[in-house]
């Protein structure tokens, strides 16, 4: 008997990773549907359009942060600085505006620019100085926290103008049936659309390849350092937008961004994106954020203490990564 090498391995299709495999969005969609049903049972008026839009408005910052974090994670990196960046942005905005409405738009522009700049620094330190992004962004996290505390002397000063807070709080009013369309939801839709387009573009495909195998991407003529740096800039920009929205929701405090980097990473992983890069979609990451927000809402409705929510998050990230690893193996 002779063993011949298969020449036309069309049969290898069997080993093709299924639609439920690592990187797929179907699992998160399934979880989201289940959670939405559960919330609906607990609180039937959840599905009234205004209530649903209000829920989306609350979810918008996390979804935007998750989209930004996705770009970094799928390229094989982490961005741990986004939580403290959000805090820093809100605190800076409050101090610079100090209740003066005329300062609103210049400060919004400044907040966006600062977010992009922090992302650029993260990216350049990671790619040019070859510092692992885990360390780069952890360092940036501490720098931002320390700098903001020092600058404000320990407690936030100043106040955001009503115009600034409008972006996170208000919306287009008087829309028939829907009621009010929050600006936050509009901003979210625009950014989500841009993120999806970016991932369908050549840039997005190269970003995936970089996360999968940076050496192959380089040998194919890709600018690996450039692409990774852009991912950090996107993440910083998203954090800035999230900060603007969150500043509108709540008050000015050092707590506004606390832990958000971890929540965003949990959301991304829940969305089926594989840590280490190269697999998963930005839609999955954003759905992951929505799912996490729905879960937190449900826990709230069930009267679970807020403190437990972080434990649940921890469990989710461990489970999602472990299950992702198992799925990747089969």
């Amino acid at each position: 008997m002779t063993v011949e090498a298969p020449t036309g391995p069309a049969t290898l299709g069997q080993s093709r990773r299924g639609r439920w495999g690592a990187g797929s969005i179907l699992p998160v969609v399934a979880i989201l549907v289940l959670l939405l049903i559960a919330v609906g049972i607990r609180q039937p008026d959840f599905y009234d359009p205004p209530a649903l839009l209000a829920f989306l408005k609350r979810s918008a910052p996390l979804i935007i942060l998750a989209a930004g974090q996705y770009f970094v994670i799928v390229a094989g990196d982490f961005d741990l600085s986004v939580g403290s960046l959000v805090t820093a942005e809100v605190v800076i905005a409050a101090r610079l505006i100090d209740g003066d409405p005329s300062a609103t738009w210049p400060v919004v522009a400044l907040v966006l620019a600062f977010g992009l700049l922090v992302g650029l620094v993260n990216g350049l330190v990671t790619t040019l100085l070859l510092v692992p992004s885990f360390i780069t962004t952890l360092g940036m996290y501490l720098i931002l926290v320390g700098a903001v505390y020092t600058w404000t002397g320990g407690s936030p000063r100043g106040a955001l103008s009503e115009e600034f807070r409008m972006l996170g709080r208000r919306g287009i009013e008087g829309v028939p049936w829907l009621g009010e369309i929050p600006y936050a939801v509009l901003i979210l839709l625009v950014l989500a659309g841009l993120a999806i387009l970016a991932m369908r573009s050549d840039f997005g495909k190269v970003l995936l390849a970089v996360g999968d195998n940076p050496r192959a991407a380089r040998l194919a003529g890709g600018r690996v350092a450039g692409v990774r740096t852009i991912a950090f800039v996107v993440s910083g920009g998203c954090a800035a937008v999230a900060a603007i929205l969150l500043g509108g929701f709540g008050g000015v405090s050092f707590q506004v961004g606390a832990g958000l980097e971890f929540t965003a990473i949990t959301a991304v992983v829940l969305g089926g994106v594989v840590l280490g890069g190269g697999r998963g979609s930005v839609v999955g990451a954003m759905l992951g954020a929505l799912t996490l927000q729905t879960l937190l809402t449900l826990l709230n409705l069930l009267g679970v203490a807020g403190a437990l929510a972080s434990a649940v998050q921890g469990l989710i990230i461990l489970a999602a990564v472990a299950i992702g690893g198992l799925r990747a193996r089969t």
């Binding site: 390849a209 999968d212 890709g222």
Partner: peptide, 19 residues
């Protein structure tokens, strides 16, 4: 260093053009 193994056949074939 030749292939991005988790990407599709098509994406790998397009990699140089896109990159």
């Amino acid at each position: 260093e030749g292939l991005a193994l988790s990407q599709s056949v098509l994406d790998n074939a397009l990699l140089a053009s896109r990159a």
